[in-house]
């Protein structure tokens, strides 16, 4: 581990922020066109973030401030372990377990900070967010463990590399179609897109965990949200949609995957949180278990195209 590793980590962090914020701005325009509006400028998301950082801010106590820093730190630490098109800041450390544990620091930091604000809406939002996490995580983890079992490795970049060279037929989403469906549905839950956005719900619980954030705290939360989106989409892209052989291919596939999720979510209504949990435990969990059994006992999809 040399200084260059940390420089690469910083480059990934900066590139992830700029890339994802641009994609978000582009998707705000896509959303607007779906609703027959003209939409904001493509760089509107940057303006929003820098405006929020410019405003004054108040504290609701030590936990409130510390939680924001802890969440942002945990998410930033996760981003530098994400392999992007074979490029890794810290080689051989892009383990699925490392990423999922570090991601939990960010989630829990956010929960702690929101609960520290003392607002009841924030507590309701946090409890919904954690319930939602429990709902999508179990089917997704079963599918990821299936992948780890099938390929004998937990390294994200190795799983991504194994899918390349065969075109679209090499993707795990095609080789293991039920697992691909589970991962795609779980991505909606991870990103908090409709129909699984009951923990944000601006009109019902006043934007949930974000209710007491204003000014600089809100700016940090926006940055955190962009980085978290980058982690989640990258994870699904690397594990199920073949990653990318070059940075350009990776960026294009990433943009298509995220835009597709956004387009579908824009025409969805919103589940209540109990309905979301029921849905995840009824459909994707069954798919995930069937996929696991198929891979373990029949071996289909592991080397079926050869």
């Amino acid at each position: 581990m040399t200084v260059m590793n940390f420089v690469y980590g910083f480059i990934i962090l900066l590139a992830a922020f700029i890339f994802q914020t641009t994609i978000t701005g582009f998707n705000r325009k896509v959303t607007a066109r779906i609703q027959k509006r003209y939409g904001p400028r493509w760089y509107q998301q940057f303006l929003d973030i820098f405006k929020a950082l410019r405003k004054s801010s108040i504290t609701h106590g030590w936990i409130f401030d510390f939680g924001v820093i802890m969440a942002l730190g945990g998410i930033m630490a996760t981003v530098i372990f994400i392999p992007v098109a074979g490029f890794e800041a810290f080689p051989n450390m892009d383990n699925v377990y490392i990423i999922s544990y570090l991601l939990a620091i960010g989630m829990l930091g956010m929960a702690m900070s929101a609960a520290g604000s003392g607002n009841p809406w924030a507590s309701i939002g946090v409890s919904r967010a954690l319930t939602n996490m429990l709902a999508y995580d179990i089917p997704l983890m079963i599918v990821i463990f299936t992948l780890i079992f099938a390929f004998d490795t937990a390294s994200v970049s190795e799983i991504a590399a194994m899918q390349q060279g065969m075109g679209i037929l090499g993707w795990n989403a095609i080789r293991m179609p039920l697992g691909g469906i589970v991962a795609f549905i779980a991505l909606f839950g991870m990103l908090g897109k409709k129909p699984f956005d009951s923990f944000i719900a601006p009109a019902e619980i006043a934007s949930g965990p974000m209710v007491e954030y204003g000014g600089k705290h809100l700016g940090f939360m926006f940055i955190l949200h962009e980085l978290m989106t980058f982690i989640e989409v990258s994870l699904i892209l690397n594990l199920f949609f073949g990653g990318g052989s070059s940075i350009l291919v990776y960026a294009i596939k990433y943009a298509i995957l995220y835009t597709l999720v956004n387009i579908i979510s824009q025409v969805m209504p919103r589940y209540k949180i109990d309905q979301a949990v029921k849905f995840f435990y009824r459909v994707p969990l069954v798919f995930a278990i069937i996929q696991g059994l198929v891979v373990i006992f029949l071996g289909w999809g592991v080397s079926v195209w050869f």
């Binding site: 939409g39 904001p40 509107q44 303006l47 929003d48 601006p202 974000m210 209710v211 007491e212 204003g214």
Partner: peptide, 11 residues
């Protein structure tokens, strides 16, 4: 109004 960069917020 989102053309102007404006949008509703919850709180």
């Amino acid at each position: 109004m989102e053309r102007l960069g404006m949008g509703p917020m919850a709180t």
